[in-house]
Simulated scan of single mutants.
Amino acid sequence: MEAVKESEKYIRIPYEFLSKGFTAAGLLTLGKIFTFSSANAKDGICRSSFKTFANDFRLSERQIARQVKELKAEKIVVQDKSRRACAAYTYAGKKCGNAFIRSDLYLYQKEFEICGEGKRYLTHSEILVLSLIQTHCGNPNAGKYTGSIRGMAKLLGLSSSTVQRCLDVLKRAHLITCESKAPNGSRWSTYRINKKLLRTKEREARDSDKKGYVDPKIAALDAKSEREHYYAVARDRANAPAEQMQARLRADERYREAERQYNRLTPMIGKYDAFGQAEESRKAKVEQKRWAAVMAERMAALNISPEDLRPRYRCVKCSDTGFLPNGQMCDCYPKGGRR
């Protein structure tokens, strides 16, 4: 079996691997190394890093590192450390036959709408069952997969109940159809794949690769951060001219003293009003009015109007906060993100 170029977006899992008791992480790791390297191929080497493995199969780098270590310990995989890059793995296990399951990488990276569950990623067991059916359906001589649940379970190294559950999920996701259903798990049923839906998902995955794939949750957080940044900058710009004028006023000693006295009287007036001290409140208001006149006089002397002290918001509806008084998001945010 010839090695496959790492630019290809699928892996081959020989049937011989399925009965070895590998975990899902181990099976996928070994499958990729086997696919992109071959004992029969000259200079066939898998150069994927732990990060690439993890991204391909939605696993952690720690899981990949553990599996590679175990495969190397069992001498199924060898690593060429003489090369500059640490990622240089070659399959060194027993020679495998030509029968294998093809598993497309986009199946691990795309979410599917599942009736009764919503949108989610497929589990590795579900992908393995789907890949088995898809491999047989891709054979022009067959065009379908015919087999029993128990036979699939034995072939894939899964339990019959797991295979039954996976088939149920794949049918509810409209990824497969069952044309002739056997009355029990020991009899054969016929399955076909939904080629149109799978082609759509594959095309979406290719488009994501071109643009650079971003997890939807991360994209949502990035969009929220972008929006918050946009309005923070807008508020700073709106407040900047007013703050400059305030700084000019407070640099004036007479204005600064008048403002201090004016602000000192404000809580006192509130206290007098609360306790019914009308005369004291009246005197404080007269004094405050006098200090307000001093402030106005200094503003006129410095050629600063009250309008100059107000922020110049770009959006009068939300005052550059992004939210209307009723709590709804304002429509002033530019389409396509901040500019």
Rank of each mutant, 00 (worst) to 15 (best):
Y106F: 15
R165S: 15
P306D: 04
A142C: 10
E226D: 09
R47F: 12
Y313A: 03
S281L: 12
L27Y: 05
E70L: 11
S189M: 15
V163I: 02
R47S: 13
L302S: 03
R66S: 02
T321K: 07
T123K: 06
A232L: 15
L324T: 06
I133H: 03
K224L: 15
G31H: 00
V286R: 15
A92L: 01
F53V: 04
Y121V: 00
R62V: 11
R206V: 13
S159R: 00
E2K: 02
R338A: 11
Q246R: 12
N98D: 06
A223M: 04
A240R: 14
K271V: 13
D43L: 12
R237E: 15
S225I: 11
K51D: 14
R248A: 08
R227N: 01
E8Y: 08
L28Y: 08
L122N: 00
V129T: 04
I304V: 09
L175T: 06
R206G: 08
D209P: 07
S103N: 00
K75N: 08
A220L: 15
G138K: 14
S103W: 00
R338L: 06
K201Y: 15
K119P: 01
A41Y: 13
E287T: 11
L324G: 04
A238R: 00
R192F: 04
V286T: 14
F112H: 01
Q164A: 11
E113A: 04
N55S: 14
S148W: 09
L59K: 05
L30C: 06
G93N: 03
L302Q: 02
R256H: 02
H229M: 09
G31C: 02
I127C: 02
R290S: 14
N184C: 13
D209C: 03
K210G: 02
D273C: 11
G157S: 01
A25D: 05
S48L: 11
E202Y: 14
K69A: 11
P306N: 05
G118C: 02
P267W: 00
S125R: 05
G337C: 09
R250Y: 13
E8H: 10
A300I: 10
K181C: 12
S131C: 06
M245S: 10
L265A: 07
Q288W: 07
I193R: 00
G143K: 10
K211E: 08
E179L: 15
I11D: 03
R282F: 12
N263H: 13
G21M: 01
E111H: 10
P306Q: 04
R235K: 15
D308M: 06
T177L: 14
S7Y: 10
L324C: 06
D236S: 15
H174P: 09
V163G: 00
K196V: 14
R203C: 14
R12M: 07
S38V: 06
A293Y: 12
I149H: 06
H174Y: 14
F275I: 10
A173W: 13
I149K: 05
E307M: 05
E202P: 06
R339Q: 11
S180W: 08
Y333I: 07
F36H: 09
R203G: 11
A142N: 11
R172V: 01
S161Y: 11
Q79G: 04
E6R: 02
G337A: 08
E16Y: 06
N40F: 14
G118A: 01
R62L: 09
N263A: 12
I11G: 00
A284P: 01
S281G: 14
L170N: 04
A88C: 01
E253P: 03
M152W: 10
A234E: 15
R84G: 10
G147D: 03
L324P: 07
E243G: 09
L156H: 05
S189W: 15
